[in-house]
Protein backbone atom coordinates (compact mmCIF):
# COMPACT_ATOMS: atom_id res chain seq x y z
CA UNK A 1 0.00 0.00 0.00
CA UNK A 2 2.84 2.39 0.80
CA UNK A 3 4.20 1.89 -2.70
CA UNK A 4 0.78 2.88 -4.02
CA UNK A 5 0.70 6.00 -1.87
CA UNK A 6 4.23 6.89 -2.89
CA UNK A 7 3.48 6.46 -6.58
CA UNK A 8 0.37 8.62 -6.26
CA UNK A 9 2.50 11.23 -4.55
CA UNK A 10 4.93 11.24 -7.47
CA UNK A 11 2.06 11.73 -9.93
CA UNK A 12 0.67 14.56 -7.81
CA UNK A 13 3.87 16.61 -8.00
CA UNK A 14 3.68 17.60 -11.70
CA UNK A 15 -0.04 18.30 -11.38
CA UNK A 16 0.61 20.59 -8.43
CA UNK A 17 3.36 22.34 -10.37
CA UNK A 18 0.92 22.91 -13.23
CA UNK A 19 -1.65 24.28 -10.81
CA UNK A 20 0.96 26.54 -9.19
CA UNK A 21 1.83 28.00 -12.60
CA UNK A 22 -1.86 28.55 -13.31
CA UNK A 23 -2.53 30.15 -9.93
CA UNK A 24 0.47 32.42 -10.33
CA UNK A 25 -0.49 33.35 -13.89
CA UNK A 26 -4.07 34.19 -12.91
CA UNK A 27 -2.82 36.46 -10.12
CA UNK A 28 -0.38 38.17 -12.49
CA UNK A 29 -3.07 38.72 -15.13
CA UNK A 30 -5.23 40.50 -12.60
CA UNK A 31 -5.33 44.19 -13.43
CA UNK A 32 -3.91 46.29 -10.62
CA UNK A 33 -2.92 44.84 -7.29
CA UNK A 34 -2.76 45.66 -3.64
CA UNK A 35 0.32 47.86 -4.04
CA UNK A 36 -1.24 49.82 -6.90
CA UNK A 37 -4.32 50.38 -4.76
CA UNK A 38 -2.05 51.64 -1.96
CA UNK A 39 -1.03 54.56 -4.18
CA UNK A 40 -4.57 55.91 -3.98
CA UNK A 41 -3.90 56.70 -0.36
CA UNK A 42 -2.29 60.18 -0.31
CA UNK A 43 -0.21 59.26 2.73
CA UNK A 44 1.61 56.56 0.77
CA UNK A 45 4.35 57.84 -1.50
CA UNK A 46 5.48 56.21 -4.70
CA UNK A 47 8.91 55.67 -3.12
CA UNK A 48 7.41 53.57 -0.31
CA UNK A 49 5.59 51.35 -2.78
CA UNK A 50 8.74 50.99 -4.88
CA UNK A 51 10.69 50.02 -1.80
CA UNK A 52 8.14 47.35 -0.87
CA UNK A 53 8.23 46.15 -4.44
CA UNK A 54 12.02 45.79 -4.34
CA UNK A 55 11.89 44.12 -0.95
CA UNK A 56 9.56 41.39 -2.23
CA UNK A 57 11.34 41.14 -5.59
CA UNK A 58 8.17 42.32 -7.33
CA UNK A 59 10.31 44.50 -9.64
CA UNK A 60 11.98 41.37 -11.05
CA UNK A 61 10.91 39.51 -14.19
CA UNK A 62 7.81 37.33 -13.81
CA UNK A 63 9.69 34.01 -13.84
CA UNK A 64 12.03 35.17 -11.07
CA UNK A 65 9.00 36.12 -9.00
CA UNK A 66 7.43 32.73 -9.66
CA UNK A 67 10.54 30.75 -8.72
CA UNK A 68 11.02 32.90 -5.66
CA UNK A 69 7.43 32.30 -4.57
CA UNK A 70 7.63 28.58 -5.32
CA UNK A 71 10.86 28.08 -3.39
CA UNK A 72 9.26 29.91 -0.48
CA UNK A 73 6.19 27.68 -0.59
CA UNK A 74 8.33 24.54 -0.60
CA UNK A 75 10.10 25.83 2.50
CA UNK A 76 6.79 26.64 4.18
CA UNK A 77 7.06 30.40 3.65
CA UNK A 78 3.91 31.55 1.91
CA UNK A 79 4.86 35.19 1.61
CA UNK A 80 3.51 38.30 3.22
CA UNK A 81 -0.01 39.66 3.53
CA UNK A 82 0.06 43.34 2.56
CA UNK A 83 -3.50 43.73 3.77
CA UNK A 84 -2.79 42.49 7.29
CA UNK A 85 0.91 43.39 7.45
CA UNK A 86 1.78 39.91 8.66
CA UNK A 87 3.22 36.69 7.22
CA UNK A 88 0.60 34.61 5.41
CA UNK A 89 1.38 31.37 7.22
CA UNK A 90 0.71 32.99 10.61
CA UNK A 91 -2.67 34.25 9.43
CA UNK A 92 -3.66 30.87 8.06
CA UNK A 93 -2.55 29.03 11.20
CA UNK A 94 -4.75 31.22 13.35
CA UNK A 95 -7.84 30.27 11.40
CA UNK A 96 -6.99 26.71 10.51
CA UNK A 97 -8.07 25.21 13.83
CA UNK A 98 -11.65 26.40 13.77
CA UNK A 99 -11.96 25.77 10.04
CA UNK A 100 -10.89 22.15 10.34
CA UNK A 101 -12.96 21.66 13.49
CA UNK A 102 -16.15 22.98 11.87
CA UNK A 103 -15.54 21.17 8.60
CA UNK A 104 -14.76 17.79 10.16
CA UNK A 105 -17.73 18.07 12.48
CA UNK A 106 -20.00 19.00 9.58
CA UNK A 107 -18.75 16.20 7.33
CA UNK A 108 -19.18 13.71 10.18
CA UNK A 109 -22.71 14.90 11.02
CA UNK A 110 -23.64 14.93 7.34
CA UNK A 111 -22.66 11.31 6.82
CA UNK A 112 -24.16 10.06 10.06
CA UNK A 113 -27.52 11.59 9.12
CA UNK A 114 -27.51 11.18 5.35
CA UNK A 115 -26.44 7.54 4.95
CA UNK A 116 -29.17 5.99 7.16
CA UNK A 117 -31.74 8.33 5.62
CA UNK A 118 -30.65 7.30 2.15
CA UNK A 119 -30.97 3.62 3.04
CA UNK A 120 -34.33 4.20 4.68
CA UNK A 121 -35.79 6.15 1.76
CA UNK A 122 -34.62 3.48 -0.68
CA UNK A 123 -36.20 0.64 1.31
CA UNK A 124 -39.50 2.36 2.04
CA UNK A 125 -39.64 3.94 -1.36
CA UNK A 126 -43.35 4.63 -1.41
CA UNK A 127 -43.85 5.17 2.32
CA UNK A 128 -44.92 8.47 3.80
CA UNK A 129 -41.74 9.00 5.79
CA UNK A 130 -39.52 8.39 2.76
CA UNK A 131 -41.56 10.68 0.53
CA UNK A 132 -41.34 13.37 3.16
CA UNK A 133 -37.58 12.90 3.58
CA UNK A 134 -37.13 13.05 -0.18
CA UNK A 135 -39.07 16.22 -0.43
CA UNK A 136 -37.09 17.83 2.37
CA UNK A 137 -34.00 16.68 0.50
CA UNK A 138 -35.08 18.61 -2.57
CA UNK A 139 -35.64 21.69 -0.44
CA UNK A 140 -32.25 21.23 1.18
CA UNK A 141 -30.58 21.30 -2.21
CA UNK A 142 -32.52 24.29 -3.48
CA UNK A 143 -32.16 26.51 -0.40
CA UNK A 144 -29.17 28.83 -0.48
CA UNK A 145 -27.16 28.54 2.72
CA UNK A 146 -27.40 32.24 3.49
CA UNK A 147 -31.20 31.95 3.46
CA UNK A 148 -31.01 29.08 5.96
CA UNK A 149 -28.69 31.19 8.09
CA UNK A 150 -31.03 34.20 8.01
CA UNK A 151 -34.09 32.10 8.80
CA UNK A 152 -32.33 30.50 11.77
CA UNK A 153 -31.10 33.87 13.02
CA UNK A 154 -34.61 35.24 12.65
CA UNK A 155 -36.08 32.24 14.48
CA UNK A 156 -33.63 32.54 17.38
CA UNK A 157 -34.18 36.31 17.66
CA UNK A 158 -37.97 35.85 17.59
CA UNK A 159 -37.73 33.22 20.28
CA UNK A 160 -36.07 35.79 22.52
CA UNK A 161 -32.44 34.82 21.95
CA UNK A 162 -29.91 37.64 21.94
CA UNK A 163 -26.56 36.25 20.89
CA UNK A 164 -26.70 34.68 17.44
CA UNK A 165 -23.76 34.31 15.14
CA UNK A 166 -20.18 33.63 16.12
CA UNK A 167 -19.25 30.60 18.13
CA UNK A 168 -19.43 32.12 21.60
CA UNK A 169 -21.43 34.61 23.62
CA UNK A 170 -19.50 37.88 24.01
CA UNK A 171 -18.45 37.20 27.60
CA UNK A 172 -16.74 33.92 26.62
CA UNK A 173 -14.83 35.00 23.52
CA UNK A 174 -11.59 35.84 25.31
CA UNK A 175 -12.24 33.72 28.37
CA UNK A 176 -10.06 30.64 28.99
CA UNK A 177 -11.63 27.26 28.26
CA UNK A 178 -14.07 26.13 30.92
CA UNK A 179 -17.12 23.91 31.14
CA UNK A 180 -19.40 26.94 30.84
CA UNK A 181 -17.59 28.11 27.74
CA UNK A 182 -17.90 24.67 26.18
CA UNK A 183 -21.65 24.58 26.86
CA UNK A 184 -21.96 28.08 25.44
CA UNK A 185 -20.19 26.91 22.28
CA UNK A 186 -22.55 23.95 21.87
CA UNK A 187 -25.43 26.42 22.08
CA UNK A 188 -23.97 28.33 19.13
CA UNK A 189 -22.59 25.46 17.13
CA UNK A 190 -25.84 23.97 15.87
CA UNK A 191 -26.62 26.94 13.63
CA UNK A 192 -23.43 26.75 11.52
CA UNK A 193 -23.74 22.96 11.47
CA UNK A 194 -27.19 23.16 9.90
CA UNK A 195 -26.25 26.00 7.57
CA UNK A 196 -23.08 24.37 6.24
CA UNK A 197 -24.31 20.79 6.37
CA UNK A 198 -27.86 20.93 4.97
CA UNK A 199 -26.86 20.98 1.35
CA UNK A 200 -24.36 18.12 1.68
CA UNK A 201 -26.76 16.02 3.76
CA UNK A 202 -29.45 16.36 1.11
CA UNK A 203 -27.15 15.46 -1.75
CA UNK A 204 -25.50 12.49 -0.01
CA UNK A 205 -28.90 11.20 1.06
CA UNK A 206 -30.18 11.34 -2.52
CA UNK A 207 -27.09 9.64 -3.91
CA UNK A 208 -27.21 6.92 -1.29
CA UNK A 209 -30.87 6.35 -2.12
CA UNK A 210 -30.15 6.07 -5.84
CA UNK A 211 -27.20 3.71 -5.23
CA UNK A 212 -29.28 1.52 -2.92
CA UNK A 213 -32.09 1.27 -5.46
CA UNK A 214 -29.53 0.35 -8.08
CA UNK A 215 -27.92 -2.33 -5.94
CA UNK A 216 -31.19 -3.79 -4.65
CA UNK A 217 -32.23 -4.69 -8.18
CA UNK A 218 -28.98 -6.56 -8.85
CA UNK A 219 -28.83 -10.30 -9.35
CA UNK A 220 -26.55 -10.99 -6.41
CA UNK A 221 -29.05 -9.43 -4.02
CA UNK A 222 -31.78 -11.69 -5.42
CA UNK A 223 -29.41 -14.67 -5.12
CA UNK A 224 -28.59 -13.76 -1.54
CA UNK A 225 -32.29 -13.56 -0.72
CA UNK A 226 -33.14 -16.78 -2.52
CA UNK A 227 -30.52 -18.76 -0.67
CA UNK A 228 -32.36 -17.84 2.48
CA UNK A 229 -30.06 -15.29 4.09
CA UNK A 230 -31.67 -13.16 6.73
CA UNK A 231 -32.89 -9.86 5.30
CA UNK A 232 -30.59 -8.05 7.72
CA UNK A 233 -27.55 -9.82 6.27
CA UNK A 234 -28.68 -9.22 2.68
CA UNK A 235 -29.16 -5.59 3.45
CA UNK A 236 -25.97 -4.79 5.32
CA UNK A 237 -23.48 -7.24 3.85
CA UNK A 238 -24.65 -7.28 0.25
CA UNK A 239 -26.55 -4.12 -0.49
CA UNK A 240 -25.18 -1.33 1.71
CA UNK A 241 -21.53 -2.31 1.32
CA UNK A 242 -21.83 -2.02 -2.43
CA UNK A 243 -24.04 1.03 -2.46
CA UNK A 244 -21.70 3.08 -0.28
CA UNK A 245 -18.61 2.65 -2.48
CA UNK A 246 -19.36 5.35 -5.06
CA UNK A 247 -19.91 7.77 -2.18
CA UNK A 248 -16.52 7.00 -0.68
CA UNK A 249 -14.82 7.75 -3.97
CA UNK A 250 -16.42 11.18 -4.23
CA UNK A 251 -15.96 11.98 -0.54
CA UNK A 252 -12.40 13.04 -1.33
CA UNK A 253 -13.73 15.78 -3.56
CA UNK A 254 -15.41 17.40 -0.57
CA UNK A 255 -12.13 18.12 1.22
CA UNK A 256 -11.37 21.39 -0.63
CA UNK A 257 -14.81 22.54 0.47
CA UNK A 258 -13.25 22.83 3.91
CA UNK A 259 -12.12 26.23 2.72
CA UNK A 260 -14.85 27.33 0.37
CA UNK A 261 -18.10 25.93 1.74
CA UNK A 262 -17.82 28.11 4.80
CA UNK A 263 -17.21 31.38 2.94
CA UNK A 264 -20.80 32.59 2.84
CA UNK A 265 -21.97 30.91 6.03
CA UNK A 266 -18.99 32.38 7.89
CA UNK A 267 -19.62 35.88 6.60
CA UNK A 268 -23.29 35.78 7.59
CA UNK A 269 -22.72 34.02 10.90
CA UNK A 270 -19.47 35.75 11.74
CA UNK A 271 -17.38 32.62 12.17
CA UNK A 272 -13.59 32.68 12.69
CA UNK A 273 -12.75 30.46 9.69
CA UNK A 274 -10.60 30.77 6.58
CA UNK A 275 -13.59 31.51 4.32
CA UNK A 276 -14.08 35.25 5.02
CA UNK A 277 -10.29 35.71 5.12
CA UNK A 278 -10.02 34.33 1.60
CA UNK A 279 -12.92 36.48 0.45
CA UNK A 280 -11.31 39.68 1.77
CA UNK A 281 -7.96 38.78 0.25
CA UNK A 282 -9.49 38.06 -3.15
CA UNK A 283 -11.31 41.37 -3.22
CA UNK A 284 -8.28 43.32 -2.02
CA UNK A 285 -5.90 41.48 -4.36
CA UNK A 286 -3.70 40.46 -1.48
CA UNK A 287 -1.74 38.22 -3.83
CA UNK A 288 0.31 36.02 -1.52
CA UNK A 289 -2.69 35.11 0.62
CA UNK A 290 -4.79 34.24 -2.42
CA UNK A 291 -2.06 32.13 -3.97
CA UNK A 292 -1.43 30.29 -0.71
CA UNK A 293 -5.10 29.49 -0.17
CA UNK A 294 -5.68 28.43 -3.77
CA UNK A 295 -2.68 26.10 -3.55
CA UNK A 296 -3.98 24.78 -0.26
CA UNK A 297 -7.30 24.05 -1.89
CA UNK A 298 -5.59 22.13 -4.69
CA UNK A 299 -3.43 20.17 -2.26
CA UNK A 300 -6.50 19.30 -0.21
CA UNK A 301 -8.17 17.95 -3.34
CA UNK A 302 -5.19 15.69 -4.06
CA UNK A 303 -4.99 14.52 -0.47
CA UNK A 304 -8.76 13.99 -0.42
CA UNK A 305 -8.65 11.89 -3.56
CA UNK A 306 -5.76 9.83 -2.21
CA UNK A 307 -7.56 9.23 1.10
CA UNK A 308 -10.70 8.28 -0.79
CA UNK A 309 -8.82 5.75 -2.90
CA UNK A 310 -7.21 4.22 0.17
CA UNK A 311 -10.56 4.11 1.99
CA UNK A 312 -12.21 2.57 -1.05
CA UNK A 313 -9.61 -0.17 -1.31
CA UNK A 314 -10.14 -0.87 2.36
CA UNK A 315 -13.94 -0.96 2.05
CA UNK A 316 -14.05 -2.90 -1.18
CA UNK A 317 -11.79 -5.97 -1.36
CA UNK A 318 -12.34 -6.17 -5.14
CA UNK A 319 -10.33 -3.01 -5.57
CA UNK A 320 -6.61 -3.44 -5.19
CA UNK A 321 -3.89 -0.89 -5.41
CA UNK A 322 -2.71 -0.96 -8.97
Amino acid sequence: MWIFVFRRFLVAVPTLLLISVLVFAVIQLQPGGFLENMLEDPRVSRETVERIRRQYLLDQPVWVQYLNWLSGVVRGDFGYSFLNNRPVSELIWERLGWTVFLAVLTIFATWVIAIPLGIYTALRRHGLGATLANFIGYFGLATPDFLVALLLIFAVLSAGGTSVGGLFSPQYIDAPWSWAKFVDMLGHLWIPLIVIGLDGTASIMRQMRANMLDVLSQDYVRTARSKGLAERVVLWKHAVRNAINPLISIAGLSLPNLISSTIIASIVLNLPTIGPFLYDSLLNKDQYVVMALLMMSAVLLMVGNLLADVALAWADPRIRYE
Binding site: I19, Q30, I259, I263
Partner: peptide
Protein backbone atom coordinates in the same frame (compact mmCIF):
# COMPACT_ATOMS: atom_id res chain seq x y z
CA UNK B 1 -7.28 21.76 -13.15
CA UNK B 2 -10.40 23.94 -13.26
CA UNK B 3 -12.39 21.27 -11.47
CA UNK B 4 -9.76 21.23 -8.74
CA UNK B 5 -11.18 24.47 -7.39
CA UNK B 6 -14.50 24.68 -5.57
CA UNK B 7 -17.21 26.37 -7.66
CA UNK B 8 -17.86 29.40 -5.49
CA UNK B 9 -14.15 30.00 -4.91
CA UNK B 10 -13.38 29.98 -8.63
CA UNK B 11 -16.34 32.25 -9.38
CA UNK B 12 -15.30 34.79 -6.74
CA UNK B 13 -11.74 34.67 -8.06
CA UNK B 14 -12.81 35.34 -11.65
CA UNK B 15 -15.07 38.20 -10.60
CA UNK B 16 -12.31 39.70 -8.45
Amino acid sequence: VFLAFPIILLAIGIIA
